[in-house]
Write a protein that binds this DNA or RNA. Structure first.
Lengths: 330, 330
DNA sequence: TTGTAAGCGTTATCAA
DNA sequence: TTGATAACGCTTACAA
């Protein structure tokens, strides 16, 4: 391994000078910079970041922890984070927590002991962020608030959007609405359920029929498909379904397709949009989560923290866009 | 920061003993292990990986470099890599090269100077892998061979599958086929074009009309959409289109939808499948790339290299599955 | 502006 | 089985 000592010898300067050429604060005479760069080039020198980190106690890596790396919502968010991070000189390390607290905990441990510059995380109700927070690692939550913690967060207004989307179903003429939402450990699933219930109460004047509400995992299409099948095989099945995230929407669509009751026969709210939806479909109301905007906002906030900002925890709530193609088959 | 010295003092042992308790090779008496663990727990000790790496010259991080983190093909592959890597004690750092040699080069630099354990990369024709290879970083290419290099690779048989899929279009009764493939810098796009041409020659006995072949970027749906529009607005437009990857297929479908010529009116080969395709569609022939299998295979091969395997470069070619729902509208 | 030298927290060598 | 001690490659006082 080529070190600054080798480069120093070759360039006829001291190791300190070499160090200063790379990201040093102290100025170095131009011709010496030249000499050092030339020597480094010839020798194929690469600064050892571990040594640097050991010395400086800081890295240029941001860890991004999401429950599902293959969900387009998070991949878009990640891309946005990466763009902002790279512009500020950080690399992004992506970690897949799979909505599993143990995995998440392990990654938090790894990230902390890697001395990452900061962490962006979509936590769940059981996340134990204390540990990393206590050790002073800058952190920003995305999509969900931090449980029990004063941590910056970038979220969306799920309740309002869920209510609005559900209203659109009623306006389209559907009357008996089912709801498939995520597990209780995920904040957004409860918020969306709440928004849905509000709309149902507004329109019917009563609480929704409990058999019309199902919970399924966010991370697997199949769970959504099974839940939809269950709803549709009720004695008194719903004529429209609210699907609490993009995967659940995909699963629900698949169930509808299998049963030959594609929208608009049965209405659908795809909260967060089916992933990579190809085109608008009559009878499908799609809400678009501002994935990229969440990412850029969170990255910017994290970088502020990394740069030493000490203010109280901030929460940014972003709006949700919606598309209603109507129920006409065109 | 809590160090092994603090823990040692608290536990009444030497720093060396503490070090040995964590991942050490040398045995330690059980009660001392107890004492050390207890002390570490109380103090909230986390081993500093930078110091460890500096000392041992090795990390437990695998860098995965893909051209498009939001493409489902690569996200599925990444998940598979992660599963295998985690089982072997590695964390996975995901890097988005955006099909851009400069970005890729930067990430290779970062990864090398981070002393990553190994690299899994989907390179393009301009990738300069020499640099990292020379420094002895274990590497495996996925989806594409390494340009000019003796490096392990896990690929699929694009030519054969492209030919077979194109044959299916002819068999379905389509006669004038267009082809939208990726840029020349990407090996798979040329291979798929080649497979398509072979099938066209087989059936028509002549070379395909040059105006029916278009190149578009792999990484953006819109490029595919524009290309499809261009093909369909020819004086003598194709009655079926071969789309060279999942994004191009998505874009093509969108163009077909806009022009109200959805399959089976115009036939389609979606090579690699439209992302998260909801269901089979008449007139759409889908080839499924073995994304997960590529990932697990590549990860296993990389880990062998990390563990010191010195054999010649190996190339694994995996088969491609296909689905043809026929042209009947059901 | 430059060089010398002392760490950063860990692991590896060597004796005990 | 354990402990003292010398690295690992880099940054940074401090002195020149």
């Amino acid at each position: 391994m080529v070190t600054i000592y080798d480069v120093a010898k070759r360039a006829g300067v001291s190791p300190a000078t070499v160090s200063r050429v790379y990201g040093g604060q102290t100025p170095v005479t131009p011709d010496r910079v030249q000499a050092v760069r030339a020597a480094a080039e010839e020798l194929g020198f690469v600064p050892n970041r571990n040594a640097r980190r050991l010395r400086t106690n800081s890295s240029e890596i941001i860890a991004m922890m999401v429950p599902d790396v293959s969900n387009s919502f998070f991949t878009h968010m990640t891309r946005a984070v990466e763009d902002v991070a790279r512009a500020a000189g950080f690399s992004v390390m992506l970690c897949n927590t799979d909505e599993d607290p143990e995995r998440e905990q392990e990654y938090l441990r790894v990230a902390t002991s890697e001395q990452v510059a900061g962490i962006i995380i979509a936590p769940n109700a059981n996340s134990e962020l204390d540990w990393a927070v206590e050790r002073g690692v800058p952190m920003v939550c995305v999509d969900r608030h931090a449980p029990h913690h004063e941590i910056d967060a970038v979220v969306v207004d799920n309740i309002t959007a869920a209510t609005a989307a559900t209203h659109l179903l009623f306006e389209a003429g559907y009357t008996r609405l089912g709801c498939i939402t995520g597990p209780e450990t995920v904040e957004t699933s409860t918020a969306r359920l709440e928004g849905w219930m509000k709309a149902v109460r507004d329109h019917t004047g009563t609480d929704p029929d409990p058999e019309l509400v199902l919970r399924a995992r966010y991370v697997d299409d199949r769970d959504g498909e099974r839940a939809a099948q269950q709803l549709l095989s009720l004695d008194n099945p719903p004529d429209a379904i609210f699907a609490g995230n993009n995967r659940l929407a995909t699963g629900t669509l698949r169930a509808l397709y299998r049963l030959d009751t594609m929208p608009p026969k049965v209405g659908l709210v795809a909260f967060g949009g089916p992933p990579n939806s190809l085109f608008a479909w009559p009878g499908v109301i799609v809400t678009y989560l501002p994935d990229s905007l969440i990412g850029t906002t969170a990255a910017a906030m994290l970088i502020e923290r990394i740069n030493g900002l000490e203010s109280d925890a901030r929460t940014v709530t972003l709006p949700i866009a919606m598309e209603d193609p109507g129920t006409d088959v065109s």
